[in-house]
């Protein structure tokens, strides 16, 4: 567009820039504040006397002799064995991503290549399933899982999260596969491939951008989940998020809140790294469903 079209009155520019600055402050400040505060003692993080204590760490110096302390991290990771939760989260997340993508790629491919009426119904059904609050499904699982001794295992949680993830994965991969020209796999079939071979040798090599984007969102769903993991796992098998919630419920003694703060920071760090490396994919993934309608 020409420059003239973009020229705006100084007041409008000022208003727009200051609005944006306020938003950026809102979006980033809580994280910076918590990261900084996680290296202090509780008396500074929650400072009744003077808010500047939290920045300069007056009580932290008084109690530990240095302006920063790793006590919260030590308490959380070593004393409360947060590393177990980290390993559990890792196991759950890796398997959820792999299995959802396998199921979703097969299903999404078929949905994008079939013109029958039932495709529409399956997609609508997936949309309805997508709307189900996860916790209502969990209330359906508990009794049968107790009866059949399935409750508490990581594998049960993995398959449950895969299923909850499927509606979204199907929709997303469906729209990605629709963008891959049909000629590609159809010419493979003309050359004598079966449908599965055509998928394996013509589609799989070109589907990775879509798979990466969808995988990111599967990762986020599994990583961020609280409703399923809080109710379906035993204490030893707990993942990070319910473990952090557990810190708050049981331990109100001095200093233990800092365990929660430290583990919150630890659990948020991987998400930051993810956004840094995959910002473009996340943005394209969020809009993929929208722009296609």
């Amino acid at each position: 567009m020409s420059q003239a079209a973009d020229r705006r009155s100084p007041i409008l520019v000022f208003a727009s820039i200051s609005f944006l600055l306020i938003w950026l402050l809102m979006a980033s400040f809580p994280f910076l504040w918590t990261l900084w505060g996680s290296f202090k003692v509780q008396g500074d993080f929650f400072s009744k006397a003077d808010w500047s204590y939290a920045i300069f760490g007056v009580r932290t110096i008084a109690e530990t002799g240095a302006p920063f302390t790793g006590a919260g991290y030590y308490g959380a990771w070593v004393q409360e064995e947060f590393w177990r939760a980290v390993i559990n989260t890792g196991v759950v997340v890796v398997f959820v991503v792999i299995i959802s993508l396998t199921f979703g790629a097969l299903g999404g491919y078929a949905l994008s290549r079939s013109n029958y009426r039932y495709v529409f119904w399956l997609l609508m059904l997936a949309l309805i399933f997508r709307a189900m609050p996860h916790i209502t499904l969990v209330s359906g699982y508990l009794l049968p899982f107790f009866e059949w001794n399935l409750w508490g295992h990581l594998s049960t949680t993995v398959i449950v999260l895969v299923a909850i993830n499927q509606p979204f994965t199907l929709w997303m991969l469906h729209s990605f596969f629709q963008n891959i020209p049909k000629d590609l796999d159809e010419s493979a079939m003309v050359d004598g491939c079966t449908r599965f071979q055509a998928f394996r040798y013509a589609i799989v090599p070109v589907m990775w951008p879509g798979i990466v984007t969808t995988g990111l969102f599967s990762f986020l769903l599994a990583y961020n989940d609280f409703a399923v993991t809080a109710l379906l796992l035993t204490k030893e098998n707990q993942t990070m998020v319910p473990k952090i919630a557990g810190f708050l419920g049981s331990t109100q003694t001095e200093g233990n809140v800092m365990f929660a703060v430290a583990s919150v920071v630890s659990a948020t760090a991987p998400l930051f790294v993810l956004v840094i490396f995959f910002q473009r994919q996340i943005v394209s993934g969020l809009t993929a469903g929208a722009v296609k309608g």
Binding site: T102, F103, L106, A110, F129, Q166, R195
Partner: peptide
């Protein structure tokens, strides 16, 4: 093709 996904759901 759809079976695994549909079965899970």
């Amino acid at each position: 093709f759809v079976l695994p996904s549909a079965l899970a759901m």
